[in-house]
């Protein structure tokens, strides 16, 4: 794929929960190796948008195009799509009954049929990369929040996804543990991983994002490079939001 290749394209996406219209006519394009950061107030629909991208939520209308193909529940095996779209959750969601390495090799061995020895080798390399080389055999309950989140990142990477989605990956962490996770994410971005990140860490957005998307009440209000959004936002609502969080 060339640098300009489209990874995800969302067109006229609408999503409601019953009467509640949560996503309103969303258009968004994510190119390969882009890091797109979604910001916005609580309830503005950031998580819902992210979850529509890996079909944990089903859109009501519009299209979601991944790797050039329009994905529909009827015509596609969503499990296949999700293998290519990794997700990291606010609350880690590690499997508590499995050790760190078992967490990491679970999907490659069970879904892709990778040989266990091979999966362990690759899994250890990933854990080394996120700085957890000495924690293969412990259970998640023995880890700090920051370590848990790095295991979760390694677990998602083990499926060799094309895109990684992060939903407030540092919001559940003690302040002193936030940086270790952000550092891991930054390294991932530098390696060229395509990432869509919901975060309240404006420093990360400023430094790592290629694009920043500001959402308000289910709409994308403003979209631009971090300099533009943070230094000279065009929309009053963006200004108000930024002054409330910075």
């Amino acid at each position: 794929m060339s640098e300009e290749q489209e990874m995800i394209r969302v067109e006229h996406l609408n999503k409601s929960f019953g009467e509640l219209h949560v996503l309103k006519d969303i258009d968004l394009t994510v190119k390969e190796s882009d890091v797109v950061v979604l910001i916005g107030a609580s309830g503005s629909g950031k998580s819902t948008l992210l979850r529509c991208l890996n079909f944990l939520e089903m859109k009501n209308s519009g299209s979601i195009i991944i790797g050039g193909e329009q994905i529909e529940k009827k015509s596609h095996d969503l499990n296949k799509i999700r293998q290519k779209v990794g997700m990291v959750f606010q609350h880690f969601n590690l499997f508590p009954h499995k050790t760190v390495i078992e967490n990491v090799i679970e999907a490659p061995t069970q879904v892709k049929g990778v040989k266990k020895s091979e999966a362990i080798k690759e899994g250890k390399a990933l854990l080394d990369k996120v700085g957890l080389g000495d924690k293969y055999d412990v259970y998640p309950s023995k880890l700090s929040g920051g370590q848990k989140q790095r295991v979760a990142i390694a677990r998602a990477l083990a499926m060799k996804p094309d895109v990684m989605l992060f939903d407030e990956p540092t919001s559940a962490l003690d302040p002193e543990l936030v940086n270790e996770v952000l550092t891991t994410m930054k390294e991932l971005a530098e390696e060229g991983m395509t990432m869509v990140v919901v975060t309240h860490e404006m420093g990360f957005a400023r430094e790592v994002a290629d694009w920043v998307v500001y959402m308000h009440e289910g709409r994308i209000v403003e979209y631009g490079h971090p300099d533009e959004i943070f230094n000279e936002p065009k929309e009053q609502r963006t200004k108000d939001f930024l002054s409330s969080v910075l």
Binding site: L56, N79, M87, N93, A107
Partner: peptide, 17 residues
């Protein structure tokens, strides 16, 4: 926790698995 199911699905595991 429903996050467990979502974690499984997000890794490409089907519902049964």
């Amino acid at each position: 926790d429903k996050g467990q199911r979502e974690a499984g699905l997000s890794l490409g595991m089907n519902k049964g698995l």
